[in-house]
């Protein structure tokens, strides 16, 4: 199983869970598994055309998947996937 860390702003769409475990062989499968089990999350991660949104960064362990094989990046048991959206708060 691979753990996907859910950032605070998106936890309202995962039943308040901070992490979701999925079974997947690559990043794309892991994320589609995530939005299948939590459908409200889909529009926050994907555009209407089904592409990952530009302001949502996905990391495999500490590497940005854009610099690996993107959604084709393979994952194995025990890996950590993090979704890191931009936040702007400061006041």
């Amino acid at each position: 199983m691979t753990k996907i860390h859910i950032p605070t702003p998106l936890r309202q769409y995962t039943g308040k869970q901070a992490a979701v475990e999925v079974k997947a062989s690559n990043i794309g499968e892991a994320l589609s598994g995530l939005v299948t089990s939590h459908p409200d999350l889909r529009r926050h991660l994907y555009t209407d055309e089904g592409k990952l949104r530009a302001f949502v960064n996905v990391y495999l362990n500490d590497e940005d998947v854009r610099y690996l094989q993107k959604e084709a990046t393979s994952v194995s048991d025990g890996d950590n996937i993090s979704i890191v959206p931009s936040i702007a708060g400061g006041r």
Partner: peptide, 15 residues
């Protein structure tokens, strides 16, 4: 480099 584009308004709540 980290975030080429901002999220669409309303998708990320402010403080």
């Amino acid at each position: 480099c980290l975030y080429p584009e901002p999220p669409p308004p309303g998708l990320v709540p402010s403080c």
